[in-house]
Amino acid sequence: MAKPNKKGPVRTVLISCQQCKSPIFKYRKGGKGALVKCFIERIVEDMTVKPCHCPGCDQEFARETLIRGTPAYKMIGGKVHMK
């Protein structure tokens, strides 16, 4: 299987916690669909203290996994908001 493009898309989105609205990531997202996964190499700015946990309310919003051989965060449905 093909690996994701390292440079990736140009469009940057802000990902925040659905519950407490605190910012989590700035991420280079491709496509128009919902946020299902975040490739770690595409994260521009990481505001978390503990991986996969919100810095504001400490709620788990994702799980670490390998997708196509690349480290990524698999989002838990309804835990994050994307702008």
Rank of each mutant, 00 (worst) to 15 (best):
G78T: 04
F25H: 06
M82H: 01
K37L: 08
E41W: 10
L35V: 04
R42F: 08
G8Q: 03
L14V: 09
P9I: 00
K79E: 04
G69I: 13
M75W: 07
V36N: 14
K74S: 14
V13Q: 03
K74A: 13
G8W: 08
V44E: 13
R11D: 10
T65I: 06
Y27W: 14
T48K: 09
D58V: 13
A34M: 10
E60L: 09
E41I: 07
A2P: 08
P51S: 01
G78Y: 12
Q19S: 07
I24R: 02
V13F: 11
F25Y: 15
C38F: 06
V10C: 00
H53Y: 07
V44Q: 12
R68C: 14
I43S: 04
R11F: 06
P9K: 08
K6Y: 05
C17M: 00
K29A: 08
S22L: 10
E41T: 09
D58I: 11
C38I: 15
Y27A: 01
T12L: 00
I43T: 03
K79R: 15
V49E: 11
G77K: 14
H53N: 08
P55M: 09
P23L: 03
K3I: 08
K74L: 13
P23V: 04
K7E: 03
Q18I: 07
I67S: 15
L66G: 03
K79I: 00
G33T: 02
Q19A: 05
K50E: 11
C20V: 01
T48V: 08
C20E: 02
G69Q: 13
I40R: 12
G30H: 09
M1A: 12
C52W: 07
K50G: 02
I24L: 09
I24Y: 04
R11A: 08
C52I: 02
L14G: 04
P9F: 04
F25D: 02
I67P: 11
C52G: 00
C38N: 06
G33C: 01
R63G: 07
P55E: 12
S16E: 09
A72W: 09
Q18N: 14
I24M: 06
N5L: 04
M47R: 10
P23Y: 03
I40Y: 02
R28M: 09
